[in-house]
Amino acid sequence: MFKKVIIQSDERGLLFRRGSYVKSLQPGTYRMSPFTDDAIMVQNVLHPFAPAAKELELFLQDAELLRELAIADVQDNEYMLHYADGKFVSLLTPGIYAFWNVLKKHTFVRIDIRNPEFAPEVNLAILPKLHGHYQSFEVGGHESGILFYNNVLQRELRPGKYYFWKGPVSVMIKTLDLRQQQLDMTGQEIMTEDKVTLRLNFVCQYRIIDSLKALEIKSFEDQVYILLQLILREYVGTLKLDDLLRMKQEIAEFVLSRLNDKSGSYGVQFLSAGVKDIILPGDIKEILNTVLLAEKRAQANIITRREETASTRSLMNTAKLMDENGTLYRLKELEFLEKICEKIGTISLTGGGNLLEQLNSLLSVRGSEK
């Protein structure tokens, strides 16, 4: 009895004789004698072409079969994006693949992972299906990114998110903060021209403007700190202590000017600088306090003498006016009497003479009684 094999419209058959592939079979009904060694392997065209226990290369010599297959040969340095009717299906790693190009149209996008950055034609919507085959990096809005392949600098990256294929090339992105930054120098010991050792607290603000230049400098912040330290030593060492205390603002202006002279070599722009504190040794502080106290006492004495002189001059002017004007003299008598009355409860006057003479007599008597 013949063996009947029916191949549906969504299927294809592979005819084998004595285990060897002979040809492909189109949809239809096939009868085989039980006395032959023929066998038919039925394949669903909606599934990948993958005959069980057979190498794919065995079938690639059949030109008739190849007309219905889409072959994807992925090299060691490649990935391949597989699409069916324009819709992404999967990512193919190195190897050889075949798909029935019958009911669906299979297409492929070849990716050379020796250039790991995603090409523009890669739709980011397929990322969830690429898990494990790519890596991403993000450069913040206030940052600049520097791209390296195998530790070799490639280019500067603007803010955004970047995707790279995993493969033989290692990818690294270093980011630099472009916002305004502050460098604090605290407790820096410096000797003035007159051999006074003091401690200086200094601050400066800067911003990176050339990321590539800044990245060329090893231990960037340490080197900027040393630059600031040397400029301060250079300037403060030419000043005496009194000049230094008097010229704090000039120090900041000089240091900022010198820093910006060097800024091009560091890829930065220095925005401002200033002296926060000048800390003196204890003995120097005591001496300065003594000097300051003596200066204030001298100023107080000058003010006291000036007030005494003004008061005496005022009395002289008053006496002159009283001598020239009898009415003013009489008013002064009354003013004098008013002041006495504020201090004394009762006053009795007897005898002759004018009022001022009697009051003087009264005061003389009271003074003698004391």
Rank of each mutant, 00 (worst) to 15 (best):
6 I>S: 15
17 R>P: 01
25 L>I: 06
27 P>D: 10
27 P>H: 08
29 T>R: 06
40 I>E: 06
43 Q>M: 14
45 V>H: 01
60 L>Q: 09
63 A>C: 06
65 L>F: 00
74 V>H: 02
79 Y>T: 01
79 Y>P: 02
84 A>D: 11
94 P>H: 02
96 I>T: 15
103 L>A: 13
104 K>H: 15
114 R>T: 14
116 P>M: 04
117 E>N: 01
128 P>H: 07
131 H>G: 10
135 Q>I: 07
135 Q>N: 05
136 S>W: 05
148 F>A: 04
175 T>S: 03
190 I>T: 07
200 L>Y: 02
206 Y>N: 00
218 K>E: 14
222 D>Q: 09
227 L>K: 05
231 I>Y: 00
238 T>P: 01
244 L>S: 00
244 L>W: 00
245 L>F: 03
250 E>R: 10
252 A>H: 04
257 S>P: 00
259 L>K: 02
259 L>S: 01
261 D>H: 13
264 G>W: 10
265 S>R: 11
265 S>V: 07
269 Q>E: 13
299 Q>V: 02
300 A>I: 08
305 R>H: 10
307 E>V: 07
307 E>W: 06
308 E>D: 14
313 R>T: 13
317 N>F: 09
325 N>T: 10
330 R>Y: 07
338 E>M: 09
344 I>G: 05
346 T>I: 11
